[in-house]
Design a binder for these strands. Structure first.
Lengths: 283, 283
DNA sequence: TACGGAGTCAATAATTTATGCTCTTTACTT
DNA sequence: AAGTAAAGAGCATAAATTATTGACTCCGTA
């Protein structure tokens, strides 16, 4: 996997110094050839050891290994860009916006996939399976509610009983009914909403399983959860970032959904439901 | 010039030791990553200084520079394809699932883009701009409601007054308040819902602008609309198709959204709103 | 045979990278 | 609110890698 994608994906979780290194690398990947770890440190006004530790933390053997990998990535990217530019030639100008956006979505998706091991995604699916004798609770505010709502609808189609809340007070009331192995999925981009944290804490006290869905930044909600799904989506443009977040998160959820669909029984249920919906529109 | 080509071209004029280095590099370029100059020397039974001198003689700053260049060359030669295949090998099954799904989404997006000329997308954005003295109405049922809701929220962030309905009766009541140039966006995957068609018809009678968002199939709703956005998303698997539909549609809407964002005034409004939301969570 | 040039290597100098340790900050607990 | 654990950053230094030097050898030639 491209080291640059990896750096970007972890950027949100980094300390200040690390983030400066990351930004420098992302901006100046082509120039890295002529930088020793010491020179890079000087350029950023930090210590050489920080650079080395940064490299190791990302999983490279050391600084030269990082440098080598980025060199490869840049070389590959240069090739790719040429090909992409050729394709551009045949496009209308205003399509470029959509094209660009899709590319950024793809990057966000890749970075997000890196952050969520297959085990984790499967873990969420299993938790939901285990819960299906009980219930799956979902909650989120604002844009997060959209995801909660959409996922709740999908689960319902699979015959999994869901309780979707967009209201903290109502959810608080529901907590009383929580049984062991019930699952609560909390959607909160920044994971800082006090009400959601409180609900999460109560829920865990009832021995329910808590799944958090947040940005890949350290945050209190995430710290509480049994399983955490995290999303990487970064862009300087404030109007773009939410789109990337939404897309990457959606894809993550789609992954869980497809795992659930692998169960034949649920799939039958889905087909039956779809048919029922179909006939509801016809007559 | 590629360092490997250069090495090959000069090989014939080299001394015995140099030629052994050259041959090793040409044969094992991909393995070079893990060789220091000393290890390379050991592998060939020669001295480390010979390796360094070799590098310099070829015009590189030193051994690390040679190594870096060969790394680039190999990456370029692999051209991504091999790398992707290699990466596949190490993937878990569920990663492959996610990977596959993303590829299908990309296809759906492309197909959908082809169906919606840039003019059309821009037309929707303009209609919304024109409406912003009045109102933008949005409606959709079931999964379609998710999109209506999400888009309504985005418009609201841009300071565009929206009326979101998930209830045909309430929407019917609202139709009375429609003014010329108001916009109604109807989300309906199959475009067959009688209630929605009826609402669309009433709306047009009030001289509002009707935008339909449906699948790319002939359908009554689409026939009514002033502007039609259409989505292409096909898959044999019934559990996959909705995901593709959702993704392609979302991207289409994102395109409209970004066009609206280009207006500086709206963008300021968005930034102000985002900040306001941010501070609401902090204290 | 003596000389010169090219090539190699061992030794070592110079540079670069990695690590241990300490100090500071942060966040969490009681 | 104070204490404490954990993490991060930098300094000093150890370890490694790389570059250079100088001596030796092997040829070909005068």
């Amino acid at each position: 996997m491209s080291p640059l994608v990896k750096i970007r994906s972890e950027r949100d979780q980094m300390s200040a110094v690390e983030r400066r290194i990351a930004d420098f690398l992302l901006d100046n990947a082509q120039l890295l050839r002529d930088y020793s770890s010491q020179q890079l440190a000087n350029a950023l006004g930090i210590s050489q050891s920080s650079v080395v530790k940064f490299s190791q933390k990302l999983g490279f053997k050391g600084y030269p290994d990082l440098k080598f990998s980025i060199g490869e990535a840049v070389a590959r990217a240069d090739n790719g860009d040429d090909a992409q530019l050729a394709a551009h030639g045949t496009q209308h100008a205003s399509d470029a916006l959509a094209d660009q956006l899709w590319r950024r979505k793809s990057e966000a998706e890749q970075a997000t996939r890196l952050l969520n091991p297959a085990d984790t995604v499967a873990g969420v699916a299993n938790a939901i399976r285990a819960a299906s004798h009980g219930k799956v609770f979902l909650i989120g505010f604002g844009e997060d509610d959209i995801h909660a709502r959409g996922f709740a609808m999908k689960l319902a189609l699979l015959g999994i009983p869901t309780v979707h809340n967009f209201d903290a007070a109502r959810m608080a009331a529901n907590v009383a009914t929580v049984a062991r192995d019930d699952v609560l999925m909390v959607f909160s981009e920044h994971g800082r909403h006090p009400a959601l944290c409180k609900i999460g804490r109560w829920f865990r006290e009832q021995h329910g399983r808590l799944v958090s869905i947040t940005r890949h930044t350290p945050n209190p909600l995430r710290a509480l959860a049994d399983i955490t799904l995290v999303v990487s989506a970064h862009d300087e443009a404030a109007e773009l970032e939410p789109l990337l977040y939404q897309s990457a998160l959606q894809h993550l959820l789609d992954g869980v959904y497809l795992l659930l669909c692998e169960d034949p029984e649920r799939r039958d249920c889905l087909h039956a439901n779809l048919e029922r919906i179909q006939t509801m529109l016809e007559p």
